[in-house]
Amino acid sequence: MSESTGARARTVLAAGCVLWRRSPHSADGTEICLVHRPKYDDWSHPKGKLKHAEDALAGALREVLEETGHHCSPGARLGTVSYLVNGRPKEVVYWAAEATDGAFEPNDEVDRVLWLPPPTARTRLTQPRDRLLIDALLDSLPVKSAPES
């Protein structure tokens, strides 16, 4: 096994989504779902480790459902975030995903969710690296045209 293959084998592979919805409070607003993980006392986008041989998008959608209780419709791939966890490399692939239906119930991994406008979500996220994903999401959404007068 080459050194790069060995490093790749040790990399933790994960996937997640920047889950969003049209705001029920504003006709032109978007809200982003953040999850609170009590184990780490942090706010993040829903994500998790991939199961053996699991497709990354399938894993991302599974994690969203497990952590938020919401089904979603996947959109654009937003990119990969890489960082170290306990000295081991981790790569998380993210997609934009519009919430379609469902309801949150607290569970072992996530005790709270918040639906926030993008600027508020950006400041609530614990890790600065997660903030760039909000920009990528907003860039991927179709621009609403202004009503004609």
Score class of each variant (00 low, 15 high):
Val93Glu: 15
Leu138Ala: 01
Thr120Met: 06
Arg22Asp: 13
Asp108Ala: 15
Pro147Ala: 12
Ala7Lys: 14
Trp20Val: 03
Ile32Leu: 15
Val93Ala: 14
Leu13Pro: 03
Leu116Asp: 01
Thr30Asn: 11
Ala136Pro: 03
Gly48Thr: 03
Arg62His: 10
Val18Cys: 07
Glu148Met: 13
Phe104Val: 08
Asp41Val: 11
Val92Ser: 14
Pro89His: 07
Arg131His: 00
Leu13Ile: 06
Tyr94Ser: 04
Gly79Arg: 03
Ser73Tyr: 09
Asp101Pro: 00
Pro147Gly: 02
Ser2Met: 02
Ala96Tyr: 08
Asp130Glu: 05
Leu84Glu: 12
Ser149Ile: 07
Gly16Arg: 04
Cys17Val: 15
Pro128Ile: 00
Met1Thr: 07
Tyr40Ser: 13
Ala99Lys: 15
Lys47Thr: 08
Arg37Gln: 14
Asp139Gly: 07
Val85Ala: 11
Gly6Gln: 15
Asp108Ile: 03
Leu34Thr: 12
Ala76Gln: 14
Cys17Thr: 14
Leu116Gly: 00
Arg112Ala: 13
Pro24Met: 04
His36Leu: 02
Gly48Cys: 05
Ala97Met: 00
Asp130Trp: 10
Pro89Trp: 02
Tyr40Val: 13
Pro89Cys: 08
Ala121Val: 02
Met1Phe: 05
Ala60Cys: 07
His45Thr: 08
Leu50Asp: 09
Tyr83Asp: 08
Val12Asp: 09
Leu13Arg: 15
Val92Gly: 03
Gly48Lys: 02
Asp28Leu: 05
Thr126Gln: 02
His36Tyr: 11
Val81Thr: 11
Pro118Leu: 01
Pro142Arg: 00
Trp95Ser: 10
Pro142Asn: 00
Ala7Cys: 03
Trp43Gln: 04
Val81Ile: 08
Ser73Lys: 14
Ile32Thr: 04
Thr11Ala: 14
Ala136Glu: 11
Asp139Tyr: 07
Asp28Asn: 13
Ala121Lys: 04
Arg62Met: 05
Trp20Ala: 01
Lys49Asn: 14
Ala97Arg: 11
Ala136Gly: 04
Leu133Arg: 04
Pro38Gly: 08
Glu66Cys: 10
Glu66Trp: 08
Gly48Met: 03
Gly59His: 07
Ala136Ser: 13
Ser44Phe: 02
Pro147Cys: 09
Val81Glu: 11
Thr30Asp: 09
Glu66His: 13
Ala76Ile: 04
Leu34Ile: 09
His71Pro: 01
Pro74Asp: 03
Ala27Pro: 00
Asp135Ser: 08
Ser149Gln: 12
Pro118Thr: 01
Pro106Asp: 05
Arg88Gly: 01
His52Glu: 13
Asp111Leu: 02
Ala103Lys: 11
Ala9Gly: 01
Gly87Ala: 01
Ala97Gln: 09
Val110Thr: 15
Arg77Glu: 15
Ser149Arg: 14
Arg21Glu: 05
Val85Lys: 15
Glu31Leu: 15
Val35Gly: 10
Gly102Phe: 00
Gln127Pro: 01
Ser2Gln: 03
Ala15Leu: 07
Pro46Phe: 02
Arg37Gly: 09
Cys72Thr: 06
Ser73Gln: 15
